[in-house]
Design a protein around this nucleic acid. Sequence first.
DNA 1: TATGAATGAGCGTTCATTCAT
DNA 2: CATGAATGAACGCTCATTCAT
Lengths: 206, 206, 206, 206
Amino acid sequence: MRAEPRWARRKDARPAELRAAALDLFVERGYAATRLDDIAARAGVGKGTLYLYYASKEDLFKAVIREGLVPLYEEGERMVDVHTGSAATLLRALLHTWWARVGATALGGIPKLMIAESGNFPEVTRFYVEEVMSRGMRIIGRVLALGMDGGEFRRVPVEPAARLVMSPVVLMAVWRYSFQCFDHGDGDPADYIDLHVDTFLRGLAP
Amino acid sequence: MRAEPRWARRKDARPAELRAAALDLFVERGYAATRLDDIAARAGVGKGTLYLYYASKEDLFKAVIREGLVPLYEEGERMVDVHTGSAATLLRALLHTWWARVGATALGGIPKLMIAESGNFPEVTRFYVEEVMSRGMRIIGRVLALGMDGGEFRRVPVEPAARLVMSPVVLMAVWRYSFQCFDHGDGDPADYIDLHVDTFLRGLAP
Amino acid sequence: MRAEPRWARRKDARPAELRAAALDLFVERGYAATRLDDIAARAGVGKGTLYLYYASKEDLFKAVIREGLVPLYEEGERMVDVHTGSAATLLRALLHTWWARVGATALGGIPKLMIAESGNFPEVTRFYVEEVMSRGMRIIGRVLALGMDGGEFRRVPVEPAARLVMSPVVLMAVWRYSFQCFDHGDGDPADYIDLHVDTFLRGLAP
Amino acid sequence: MRAEPRWARRKDARPAELRAAALDLFVERGYAATRLDDIAARAGVGKGTLYLYYASKEDLFKAVIREGLVPLYEEGERMVDVHTGSAATLLRALLHTWWARVGATALGGIPKLMIAESGNFPEVTRFYVEEVMSRGMRIIGRVLALGMDGGEFRRVPVEPAARLVMSPVVLMAVWRYSFQCFDHGDGDPADYIDLHVDTFLRGLAP
DNA sequence: TATGAATGAGCGTTCATTCAT
DNA sequence: CATGAATGAACGCTCATTCAT
């Protein structure tokens, strides 16, 4: 009388599958324009099944945001914790890693999604700002402070500078989901990031 | 011997008033979540009045985008045409002007709006990409090319570099409409732009 | 200081012009599907002008019905009053006259219109039934009674027989406005009426 | 061990129930003046349920027409196929049957409905003319030809004669739904049909 | 657990009616 | 008299949510 492993596995995986389907469609069409029917269909379940895992459409949206990026940022913090080389190297690594883990994956849609829906979900927006955005900025800020303290960078206000660092990669991720199909001129994201880091590091030279 | 009937003035001004009200609400809530009732109420007219000027909600949305930024970009092009000083000065002036005319005004919501709704309006997205975004990039690109040709900047690929220039200010405008109320740490936008230009110009020094 | 004759003439003619425009459109599209804008446009006046002559759409509809056929039926009654020849000849003349004056003109749409809208306008339907339909039946009935009294026709119940007489021509008028464009097989209405009268009179031979 | 779920039975029966409710109201008030709320209420379902079976109000209307009379006309054709007695007997039987199956039932409203709405639904009007009206005429026409070929009737043009046969019964059905409540003088429909057939057959005697 | 038929509140849109000109 | 801009009640249609199976 074993439990059925196949079903059990599906049952455990369901929430993540549902969130993945929801994220895809929310990012593509926006929250309001996405029908639960479509999310259910994309996840390969019936419409009612959604309600076994999430109490409402809004609840599903919140879960998409909450479960999305937080784990990755913990990894980012560890990267800074254990780093021993130059701040410049770390900065470059962090941006490339962010792109590989977020910008180039479906998670890259989350910033676009939050930008679009912030006005309608104050509670989850506060969560996103505090637990994701600010946290990311703090990671970058730590690296900048490290470099400035070590004489590697000239002194600039940390928080605005951290925004300068993140802006190009965040906006590239956002554009990727918004204008990619109409914008035929983009080269390799890695090259773009390197150009950005090169220029920024020169700009920060003491 | 009246100068002109009150109505005529209203009739001429109405479309712009309606677009302004629509832009405010579209930016705040997103296209789908904005009710025409609310747009009409904010514009101080009845719901049916909207349909005297725009054939549908979609039509109104398109007008908001189409009539919004194009005139300003023509002005930007003229700024480059007539400029005589250094490319660095021009670049700084363009960004500050963009912020004053777009980022700090209601028009600053248009990038956020297009980011959010691009998936649902391919036609107007194409327009926005071609007539607004690409045009803005071309303006910046001309300045960068100017500086590189004049030995003021080191040689870098123009198009990605133009993106780097615009990213922080565009994203600041987007954030202003999305996360401002939750993000208590931002300083003066002008300072932020100056920090960006300073760093970027140093980074581009030959 | 004469009154302006042109205007005065227009002013007097307006109600009839408006009713004519309304009849055309009511017959073509039905009452509910006809917009007052269209009626006004067809009559060549502004939308508000309609309300100078008729208090509401419903009022206009009632006028269309009330002013439409009544005068013609008075003429029909006189035809019977003054007739001296055989009942058969009179019957044939009445049907041909009805077709010429009603069936073949715009007035032929009134039966279709009343059939369609009777459920929504009980008051005007009662008027139509009593002042138009029943009156027409009474005219035909008088002719039949004349023929039966004179030994020209065999005795049959007058009222149902009168309906039999009118049915083909009324239905032809109705079809003309409903199915004409899809029904390519109809010959000359006059031949149809003659066939009807011939057959009916034979059928009524003593 | 249930035979079948209650829902399945309902699901199969629903379309016919909805069409029946729609026919009643369309006939009573006309297409435009009938609200979907009322149709749903009469069918005992919620408003949204309609859209599970018909894509739009127009679609429902078309189904009402398409599914309404066609099966009956197939039966009519079989009656002619298998008949062996006189054409006169067959003609009388066909009219009485038509009245019993169509004129006296809710289906009798369909001719009224098509008359009223033909202008707004060209496509379904074409269907009705070709698959219902013309087909009915052809059935009657076959009987007339039969009688003429057998020497039972004198020779007359078949198509107009078929219209003469149908006009009184069709118009009686139409009137039943339009003027019944205001027209207090009608006797037994069967008597009316008999009078019609008697007269018409005498009129067609060789 | 999973389903999808059923629901009805909500919104985009239309159009008869009003009224300032 | 005549106009047409403005209005808002009304209706077709959608879709998040429920619940019997």
